[in-house]
Amino acid sequence: MAEDGHEPASEAGHGENSERLGSQSDLLTEMKALRRQARAARHAYWFPLALFGLLICASIPFYGQRVPRGVGVVSLSLAGPTLPFLGGYPGFHERGYLAYYWIAALLGGLLATQLWYRWHARRVGLATPALVYLITTAVLTVAAIAVPPLLQLLHEPQILWPNDLVARGMFPFIIIAVGLLALAWAERSRALAVIAVIYAGAALLAGLYNVSNIMPGWTAAVNVLLPAAVLLLAAAGAFATQRWHRSAA
């Protein structure tokens, strides 16, 4: 410090600049807090998790339909029900009901989710751009209906046939998984992305393997219950977290 008690001009200037830079830093911190608060208020993904978890549980009776005697051999031809990606696998004619169930469940679930997000936006005052999720799931559902007939137009359709993925009629679980990943992007939620990946793993396992082989004492319904349980547990956790955030705010 100078003898007259004043700091030299350069030092004083440095102090002012430092203060100004410090206030910019505070402003940045404040903006980060506002963004975090808005994101927490906007998150509402517990509902679609719970809804699709319940819809999967409700599909169990359709998977339990018995195959008539003599039709129990899986046919590799593409003749038969035209909705194999939604559970109506060729050779299992009764599974046609399962396919109709999934069309209604996927599209009805989308509609309910859209209504939920609109209601939530009105309630908290922040809207989530859920359109990406709706479009992704709707396009995949329509593709699941339209692709098999189109494949039959090809010379050798078996080349493109995802046999293992559709054999157990659990391809709709994969559609839900992709939809949830799109929702995680729309919600900007890492937690939902992790949930969607874990659920996708469970859905692939259920679609490709008889889970009852590793869970003795369980019936074949465990293939349906496993992905449903992942969604329902995640929904409960998300609900509790989102409620806690709101009460803390």
Partner: peptide, 19 residues
């Protein structure tokens, strides 16, 4: 104004009351 932009960038749209 920076706060308004930060909040609206976080959502598809924000309601006047929330802001």
């Amino acid at each position: 104004r920076l706060g308004i932009l930060t909040i609206t960038a976080e959502a598809q749209r924000a309601e006047f009351g929330y802001l």
